[in-house]
Simulated scan of single mutants.
Amino acid sequence: MATTWKAPPHGWFKANWDIGVDSKRGQVGLGAVIHDQHGKMWVSKSQTQQGFLDPSAAEAMAALMAVQLCMEMGIQQVQLEGDAKNVIVAVNSKEPDKSGRGQLTEDIRSTLQVIPVWEMRNAHREENKVAHALSWFGYL
């Protein structure tokens, strides 16, 4: 059975993020997209980072980009989805993140404090196609 993107509950938004790594060029692309409960896209963002190849830290950077977009839009309820379980577990944990992405995890947690209701969970690549495509946008 195919997995597809599902709209968030009534009154919520959904923010998806993902990355694309181009090891030949030494680049990583970050992508984030926010949809409303009807599946309408409200905002998207992509950017490229040069000389940055740690996928876990890149996933955390993309998650932070998505959270910052939510904060800038004044979103009050959001489901955050990405396919980096280690980032999601770290953000949801109460423990300090002792990995190489620790400061990024703290930045995500700090930014999430301004969003009253949020949940961060894992999404399969099939549920994250738009964010994944955005992550490669900078390479075109």
Results as ranks from 00 to 15, higher is better:
residue 63 A to T: 12
residue 19 I to Y: 01
residue 94 K to Q: 14
residue 37 Q to N: 08
residue 39 G to P: 00
residue 19 I to N: 00
residue 8 P to M: 07
residue 57 A to L: 10
residue 37 Q to E: 12
residue 86 N to G: 08
residue 15 A to L: 07
residue 15 A to N: 05
residue 34 I to T: 01
residue 11 G to F: 07
residue 90 A to R: 03
residue 70 C to F: 09
residue 73 M to P: 00
residue 69 L to M: 14
residue 63 A to F: 03
residue 69 L to R: 05
residue 91 V to F: 07
residue 19 I to S: 00
residue 59 E to I: 06
residue 38 H to M: 12
residue 44 S to N: 15
residue 87 V to M: 07
residue 34 I to V: 05
residue 53 L to T: 00
residue 21 V to Q: 12
residue 49 Q to V: 12
residue 50 Q to R: 12
residue 42 W to D: 13
residue 15 A to M: 04
residue 44 S to V: 09
residue 47 Q to P: 05
residue 22 D to S: 03
residue 93 S to M: 06
residue 72 E to I: 13
residue 85 K to Q: 14
residue 20 G to T: 05
residue 40 K to E: 13
residue 79 Q to T: 11
residue 25 R to Y: 11
residue 57 A to G: 07
residue 36 D to T: 14
residue 51 G to V: 03
residue 41 M to L: 15
residue 10 H to L: 10
residue 44 S to T: 14
residue 86 N to R: 13
residue 56 S to P: 10
residue 29 G to L: 09
residue 70 C to A: 15
residue 40 K to T: 13
residue 19 I to K: 03
residue 90 A to F: 04
residue 22 D to M: 03
residue 56 S to D: 15
residue 81 E to C: 04
residue 25 R to G: 07
residue 61 M to Q: 13
residue 46 S to Q: 09
residue 90 A to P: 09
residue 16 N to P: 01
residue 6 K to S: 05
residue 35 H to V: 04
residue 80 L to V: 06
residue 82 G to M: 03
residue 80 L to T: 00
residue 63 A to Y: 03
residue 53 L to I: 02
residue 6 K to L: 09
residue 31 G to L: 00
residue 52 F to H: 09
residue 79 Q to Y: 11
residue 7 A to I: 08
residue 53 L to F: 01
residue 39 G to A: 04
residue 51 G to Q: 04
residue 11 G to R: 07
residue 4 T to Q: 15
residue 2 A to S: 15
residue 3 T to E: 15
residue 51 G to Y: 07
residue 83 D to R: 06
residue 32 A to I: 02
residue 68 Q to T: 09
residue 37 Q to C: 03
residue 73 M to H: 04
residue 5 W to K: 05
residue 16 N to H: 09
residue 88 I to F: 01
residue 56 S to G: 10
residue 92 N to T: 12
residue 65 M to V: 09
residue 77 Q to L: 08
residue 74 G to N: 07
residue 41 M to C: 06
residue 63 A to Q: 05
residue 21 V to C: 11
residue 40 K to Q: 10
residue 85 K to H: 13
residue 40 K to N: 10
residue 61 M to W: 13
residue 82 G to L: 04
residue 29 G to I: 04
residue 14 K to M: 04
residue 93 S to T: 03
residue 73 M to C: 03
residue 92 N to V: 14
residue 71 M to N: 12
residue 56 S to A: 14
residue 72 E to C: 10
residue 52 F to I: 02
